[in-house]
Design a binder for these strands. Structure first.
Lengths: 240, 240
DNA sequence: GCGGCACATTGATGTGGCTCAACGTCGCGC
DNA sequence: GCGCGACGTTGAGCCACATCAATGTGCCGC
């Protein structure tokens, strides 16, 4: 794990934004070094233990966040408890889509998460004063929108096998340079994967087994997937 | 149909943006009246006949558009032809999500469409010079993202019946003030609806029939749905 | 008015993924 | 090291929706 340097707890201000490990990935990259102090003055930090709720859909949105470490699941619920995970976030990602002063989705920590927090009102002022931040946010939401559309295609039109392969390959792309073989780490549970792909845990499990029996993947443990031949997997997933 | 005033064909510049019917709904609302001439100088217009492709996914994105009349379907395709419609657009909506200089989806006219066109490079300059435009675009993409997440919930976790009811109610909300009863117009085909909801045309048709037999809706023709009792429909769809 | 075509509906049958249930497996507290 | 609970896998049967096929229905050109 890539250890961050900002471990101060909630309320701690004036952190060293200029030393932030994930600065270049986050919204903050758009803040000029000259404005760094200003940024540092309005951010605080929060540590969230694994499994804990960060906020729920519909909560009044006072704060927005950047993730400095760990992974987060975003989800929407139906009244009867059915859940759709709309995305997984990782370090550098922006957290806190707001419509009508409320969060548009719930968010939970998958593993131990460190957040960089900012009052929404402060962000709005920052955005107003530093135009590149707005550009950066616009770019990020453009990418997110493209990903959302891709996910709609997956949910509406792909088979279980295609869904799982697409998911694994997306994870692979996000991860490393891909040589002949590669391993991806899946911090989330089978239930999370199922709720992300619009399947049940049983189907996810069975599909993992089927892919293993085909020799496309290896499963050292429930949270790791090894690809002995990345190209073969991409070919198998060609119809995606 | 709300007749627009800008009927000039492609290439016509210096249109009267200040007289545009849908100005207040579109991105252009963020352009001050003082800058109207500047806006008018960079837009042109295009008429698209019903059914025609506006652009395809992956096309190099030179232009972006505002829809001044008509309705548009956005879609993504799998290599074998399976299609997912990711959204329907109407007058006032912004058209042309771009990633890596290419359109992120295909777009086709459902009925006769009038577009207000702008070179991407001109939009970028406009955005740079007129900050409120950026805000407006950010707001619009925030809303679109929230809608996309809602659609993921629908695609991944709702039944056919719930999908169709959600779809109809969303259409109703977009349309008018809703008194006791109401009618929504569906310009798109059953195939379009199916590809939007992740179903087949047969299932869409059967579900329409089932709702009609329950007395929740009436179907004067294939492109209109009447709700004799809006509240009853909302109650029936409560589990959404 | 009538043939032809696109689109929608309806029916019969098939099946992918869900449901229900049992059984592993791992990690943790005591 | 042992019991327990959370999580994952596997199996058997079922069902919501897909597929395949036939039959309306409305519209347009002639």
């Amino acid at each position: 794990m890539n250890e961050g340097r900002n471990h101060k707890v909630s309320g701690a201000s004036h952190s060293r934004c200029d030393q932030c490990d994930i600065r270049h990935k986050a919204m903050c990259a758009a803040v000029d070094t000259a404005d760094n102090d200003r940024l540092a003055a309005i951010v605080s930090h929060r540590d969230i233990p694994a499994g804990q709720v960060i906020f729920e859909e519909g909560d009044t949105a006072d704060y927005v966040y950047n993730i400095s470490a760990g992974e987060v699941r975003l989800y929407k619920l139906l009244p009867d408890g059915r859940r759709q995970i709309t995305g997984f976030l990782r370090e550098g990602d922006f957290l806190g889509l707001v419509t009508d002063d409320a969060y548009a989705y719930g968010a939970e920590a998958i593993n131990k998460v460190e957040l960089c927090c900012m009052r929404l009102s402060n962000l709005e002022r920052l955005v107003a004063d530093i135009p590149p931040v707005r550009d950066r946010l616009l770019d990020m939401s453009r990418d997110e929108l493209a990903a959302a559309q891709e996910q709609m295609l997956l949910l509406g039109r792909k088979t279980a096998r295609e869904k799982l392969l697409s998911f694994l390959l997306t994870r692979l792309d996000h991860a490393e340079d891909h040589p002949e073989e590669a391993t991806v780490h899946l911090p989330m549970s089978r239930t999370d994967i199922a709720d992300y792909l619009g399947l049940t845990i049983e189907t996810v499990s069975r599909t993992f087994t089927a892919l293993r029996e085909e020799g496309l993947i290896e499963l050292p443990d429930a949270h790791a997937v090894h690809f002995p031949d990345v190209k073969a997997v991409r070919d198998a997933a060609a119809a995606m």
